[in-house]
Design a binder for these strands. Structure first.
Length: 280
DNA sequence: ACGAGAACCTGTTTGC
DNA sequence: TGCAAACAGGTTCTCG
């Protein structure tokens, strides 16, 4: 499900029910996610107060009193769902962790494919953790611009699409937003990354920031799994120019399917959608 | 060092 | 209709 805009949407949904609240009960129903949940997680979390809910790349960071952080990754199919404790239904088969707060809310972490992950780590040296140490820049930080991106593309020989999907190039992009950003920038996903010029890198950096901001404003994209914590869906999927639109005319140059239109190819095992005429 | 492909898991959609 | 294959928003390991 979640790329940066979806995780950011989840973060914003969790803030009102978590920040300043204490976790009074935490139940781990299934610990074998992408890697095993830390032993004794419930015991280590119960009674702690949440100071702040943040995000780094596609990771949710739940800062607790006592200088520890609960790190959560939603994988491909993970969700956070908020329900009033009094109305919480019995947990389903994929509800792996259930949090109750002193505010009367239950937050359920549900992840059918179990590609998600949680860890409880010290605040100190967070960026040095193996999980974070290789991550590239946050695309929505002020410091992310054309030169910053160009520097990270300069030595990469792989296709631009694949390189952008790599979290050490830019943190937080996934398959949807890479396709959409490349379309907005008019750059071919097949180009060798190091052939991108400074001017093109500036266009691409701007396109990445724009598409992420637009998607966050829309509450992310709900294709199948993504829901905001309050249960509402995002609606950015209606604004896709190319993602999932193989065979349709290109919205940029209006070239018909006979001229190519939007086509789907596979790069490193993932679908890529683009317009061969407009994206060079 | 780098890149492609497989693997990890379950659910849904597509095609014969 | 039914079953099997393909596909899905991510990451990480292996192999060349």
């Amino acid at each position: 499900m979640p790329e940066l805009p979806e995780v950011e949407t989840v973060r914003r949904g969790l803030i009102p029910v978590l920040e300043g609240r204490r976790l009074i009960k935490v139940v781990v129903r299934r610990p074998d996610l992408r890697r095993p949940l830390p032993p004794g997680l419930s015991r280590r979390l119960e009674g702690r107060r949440v100071d702040r809910v943040d995000r780094r790349a596609k990771f949710l960071l739940i800062f607790l009193d006592g200088a520890e952080v609960l790190v959560a990754h939603l994988g491909m199919s993970g969700r956070m769902r908020i329900v009033p404790s009094t109305e919480a239904p019995p947990p389903g088969p994929h509800d792996h962790v259930v949090f109750e707060t002193d505010g009367g809310d239950t937050i359920v972490f549900c992840d059918p494919r179990r590609f998600g992950l949680m860890d409880l780590v010290p605040v100190d040296g967070l960026e040095e953790l193996p999980l974070f140490s290789g991550l590239g820049p946050e695309p929505l930080d002020d410091s992310f611009d054309g030169p910053a991106l160009a520097a990270r593309l300069a030595h990469r020989r792989g296709p631009l699409k694949t390189v952008l999907l790599d979290q050490k190039t830019v943190a937080g992009l996934g398959n949807i937003y890479v396709c959409e950003a490349l379309f907005r920038a008019g750059l071919s996903p097949l180009r060798k990354a190091h052939t991108v010029t400074g001017r093109q890198a500036a266009r691409l950096a701007a396109a990445i920031r724009d598409v992420l901001r637009d998607a966050i404003a829309a509450g992310g994209s709900s294709l199948r799994d993504h829901r905001r914590p309050d249960g509402e869906i995002g609606y950015f999927q209606h604004s896709f120019a190319v993602y999932g639109r193989a065979g349709e005319p290109c919205p940029g140059c209006n070239c018909a399917p006979s001229e190519g239109g939007i086509r789907r190819i596979v790069q490193s095992g993932r679908s890529t959608f683009y317009c061969a005429k407009r994206q060079r």
